[in-house]
Design a protein around this nucleic acid. Structure first.
Length: 471
DNA sequence: TCTGGGGTCCTAGGACCC
DNA sequence: TCTGGGGTCCTAGGACCC
């Protein structure tokens, strides 16, 4: 706990949905749902308009469609969100060298370490200025929480939503927390919440009254100790700028359960290659390979194997994953497969290690040269799912809902929907003053092509939009 | 039309070593 | 001969977060 509210938590409002509304004028003020559009998709983000229908994150998409059949349903466009996220993180970086991103749309900032605030008044001014700058640069709104600790800053930003700022004065935390639900505390999810409820504790005050020993007895050593501290308003966790990656993983849920062992095997191999691609991009190699299988009944199994040394070799990971698959029963069907690597080592270090190993091998008795690994081309099309295969038969190009397109005659627009050989496009861009016109094309129209996301805010000719520098 | 994808941290048991 | 703890690594599963 610090004496001044100099821990800042920023949370962008309905981030993915808000970015889509900024990109698509016709969706502003309308219910927008971003998430997986397949039969097993879930909601990633719902706009505030969509939340009024009861739609929320992690809800099955099918349920959302029942609640709001006329909402706009869009697939996530991470390239766009990453661009906006970088703009936001840049603004945070001007406040302090200590910025801890939690996701694309959330971060802690240590204002004291940055010298950008030392007391309540300066913290509040900094927070308000940040919100103005974010709106100017990205066109989106974010909510700010300010407090003397991470936990309280986060609770404050939650209270500030949407488009607000809340500052919790140090010294008031216990009376503030007391009546709140235990679920407010970080680390208390559905299971712990239910556990505590059965023990008669629903509010944070109930937790402090129960005492640390009782909580440890109920939920275990580490969890109980931290729960008691949090409930009492004690949280000394520092804002940490650089956190090391501990694992890299990829997984796929299939539209229809897989039954064919051969098919399961080839999917595992493809996942292994995708995982290694990501591993290499992150500059790591790793020692432990993990295979994950979710069965038809949602039961989930993992199997892992630790190698003698770290690898980023696609063949090695593919074979390890294949071996792990042999030890698992997949009768009844497979809903999801995943491959991960943990026990990571910096690539630079690994590079030397691998080089040394290769040298040793070259000097070995056989003198044999290893077969080269299959080259993984970054721009290669993703393996195609069952739904794609259906589209394939009609020789259709793929037009994901919400993606930007450009037409030779009509200009910039986005895919409103597609099916049965037709694609519907709305011709508008982020800076359009009025909702654009809608036209329908054949999916094989040569004048129509997918394009990169456009900037959400007009860039003035003299450079970057947004806040002026000091002076 | 029930339940995504990418992570982190903790627990608990067995192996193994000192 | 019997019995001891402690520490670390590995594996599997589960809770939680965004």
């Amino acid at each position: 706990m610090r004496p001044a509210p100099t821990v800042l938590h920023l949370d962008m409002d309905a981030f993915f949905a808000a970015a889509e509304q900024a990109a698509k004028p016709s969706l502003r003020g309308k219910p927008v749902v971003v998430g997986g559009l397949g039969p097993r998709g879930v909601v990633a983000t719902a706009s505030y308009e969509a939340r009024r229908f009861g739609i929320h994150s992690a809800m099955p998409m099918a349920q959302a469609r029942r609640l709001a059949p006329n909402a706009a349903y869009l697939v996530p466009r991470f390239a766009l969100y990453r661009t906006v996220s970088e703009q936001v993180m840049d603004l945070l970086g001007r406040l302090s060298p200590l910025v801890e991103p939690l996701s694309l749309d959330e971060a802690f900032v240590d204002l004291e370490a940055g010298g950008s605030a030392a007391d309540e008044a300066s913290a509040r001014a900094t927070g308000e200025r940040l919100r103005r700058d974010i709106r100017a640069v990205t066109g989106l709104t974010g909510s700010v929480g300010l407090a003397g600790s991470k936990m309280l800053a986060k609770i404050a930003s939650e209270q500030a939503k949407p488009d607000g700022l809340v500052l919790i004065e140090p010294g008031t935390e216990r009376e503030l927390l007391g009546p709140m639900s235990v679920r407010t505390l970080p680390g208390v999810g559905p299971a712990t919440g239910e556990h505590l409820r059965r023990a008669g504790m629903t509010t944070i005050a109930d937790l402090t009254e129960a005492g640390e020993d009782e909580l440890v007895r109920l939920v275990g050593k580490a969890h109980g100790t931290s729960l008691y501290r949090m409930a009492s308003g004690h949280d000394d966790r520092p804002v940490v700028a650089e956190r090391e990656t501990k694992s890299v993983s990829v997984e796929d849920t299939f539209d229809v359960d897989l039954h064919d062992r051969v098919r399961v095997r080839t999917e595992v191999e493809r996942l292994a290659e995708r995982c290694v691609r990501r591993l290499r991009e992150s500059g790591h190699s790793g020692r432990t390979i993990v295979l994950k299988v979710r069965r038809y009944d949602f039961s989930t199994l993992t199997r892992s194997e630790t190698l003698r040394g770290p690898t980023d070799d696609p063949g090695v990971v593919r074979e390890a994953a294949g071996r792990l698959l042999e030890s698992l029963d997949t009768t009844g069907g497979v809903r999801l497969l995943g491959v991960g690597v943990t026990g990571l080592t910096d690539y630079t270090q690994e590079d030397l290690f691998a080089q040394a190993a290769a040298d040793a091998e070259a000097a070995g008795a056989t003198g044999a040269v290893d077969e080269p690994d299959p080259v993984v081309v970054p721009g290669e099309p993703e393996p195609r799912s069952d739904t794609d295969a259906v589209a394939d038969e009609a020789a259709e190009r793929h037009w994901p809902a919400g993606h930007d397109v450009r037409h030779a005659e009509f200009g910039a627009g986005w895919v409103q929907g597609s099916g049965v050989g037709r694609v519907t496009v709305r011709f508008e861009e982020p800076t359009s003053a009025v909702p654009g016109r809608v036209r329908t094309f054949r999916t094989d129209d040569p004048d129509l092509e997918l394009s990169e996301p456009l900037p959400l805010v007009a860039v003035p000719p003299d450079g970057e939009p947004g806040p002026r520098g000091p002076g």
